[in-house]
Design a binder for these strands. Structure first.
Lengths: 225, 225
DNA sequence: CTGCCTCAGACATCCGATCAATGGCTAGGA
DNA sequence: TCCTAGCCATTGATCGGATGTCTGAGGCAG
């Protein structure tokens, strides 16, 4: 194994062992390099790798710190992965998303507080079919994020959010506006919100399944066209 | 943004744009560094970062290549993330795993071929409660992997597999052997396998849900103890 | 006393150069 | 034809140094 990979493992081990806690500061580059037994440059490669997957946070002129290690940070890397996939993989991803999001929506219907319900309704009412694609994408992200957050499961919420990354959403919505399906999609959002308001878990689950499956079907025929 | 991050984005963009296809070879480090407008050292940091998330494959003395970009490769990074979490996050992860694995098992019951069914039965019959923890972990991994693979969804299968990484599994199983719950867990495996053999999707889904939830409950009380 | 400025020190950032290790390829011989 | 030795391209690792940036201490003006 290369020295850099060893260094990555060692730093990871220090975190897993609790030797380095979230927010802790690592020794200066020079010292850390000595401690791990390699050159500064090689150690920097290791630190950089841990930085892109959001395990470390390097602040220039200050020092290197362990991030909060919260799910939403660590799962950011998934967006990167999702972006890189072609249409075939995208369909597989949508199946996963449908599995997660349908159940998450059902869970949200059970757990939603009054405040959360009000926020969701406000979000749905804030939009109609006349806005730009960018605004639709933003709305879509907020809508699904709010539902996912209601589950109280940060890991689940992050996974759902990053599973349909920004660029994928943009592509899909652009297609939907061309196909004239915007209004139907928005009305599905409204129906899901209604089910959550009524705390009707079974209905919310089914509507969410149908909602994702609809987009999925559109993507499937777009991919084959 | 740091030059390294720019380089990462540029390389990613080249891949997304199709300019670099899976299996393609990148220019030599020196040339690539010039092309991206930075030093070889900094470029190596970027390449290293892309290597740990399995986007690039660097072969010493040969060259740097784009990997196959298959889901199982790209999702390996998740194991890394999962390993790093504490017990609280672990519970959230188990909820996600339950959502995915239950539905995947139902799907598998529908789609399983005769060969796959035979392999699953063989796996279940190959083990009893008298073997070591390591062997139990290996069996557990193989059992759940085979079911996940039957869905034909590589992304789903990889996600499930990495969501309960090696080290997490080991920890849980060690606890289970102490608690004397091995035989019960194995019998649950047998029941799930039976449902798949019968192509009884609904039963398979429920059994898988119960199976994961059982481990989940054990983990919950272990965490609070 | 308060607010602002400057300056020094600590630290990360980036670079260019150098040598080691490795893999692939090819020429030459059996 | 097959095998091997050796060359060359390429990555692996390190060093030393110049530079940008942040933080905090201390001084100065209001």
């Amino acid at each position: 194994m290369a020295v850099t990979d060893e260094a990555i493992e060692k730093i990871k081990a220090m975190i897993v062992a609790g030797e380095l806690a979230p927010g802790d500061r690592l020794p200066p580059e020079k010292e850390l390099a000595e401690r791990l037994g390699l050159s500064r440059n090689s150690m920097r490669e290791a630190v950089k790798a841990l930085e892109v997957i959001r395990v470390l946070d390097v602040r220039r002129g200050d020092g290197t710190y362990v991030t909060s290690l919260e799910p939403h940070l660590l799962l950011e890397a998934i967006s990167f992965v999702v972006d890189m996939h072609d249409d075939d993989s995208m369909l597989e991803i949508f199946v996963v998303r449908r599995m997660l999001e349908s159940q998450a929506t059902g869970l949200a219907a059970n757990l939603a507080t009054d405040d959360e319900v009000a926020a969701l309704v406000a979000e749905v009412n804030s939009i109609d079919g006349s806005v730009s694609v960018e605004e639709l994408v933003e709305h879509d992200i907020r809508f699904h994020r709010e539902i996912a957050r209601m589950t109280g499961n940060a890991y689940l919420a992050s996974l759902i959010e990053h599973l349909s990354s920004q660029t994928v959403r943009a592509r899909v919505w652009r297609g939907l506006t061309e196909g004239g399906a915007v209004e139907r999609t928005l009305s599905e959002h409204r129906a899901i919100a209604d089910a959550v308001v009524q705390h009707d878990s079974a209905l919310a689950t089914s509507l969410a399944t149908a909602h994702i499956a609809g987009v999925e079907r559109w993507l499937r025929q777009a991919a084959s066209a």
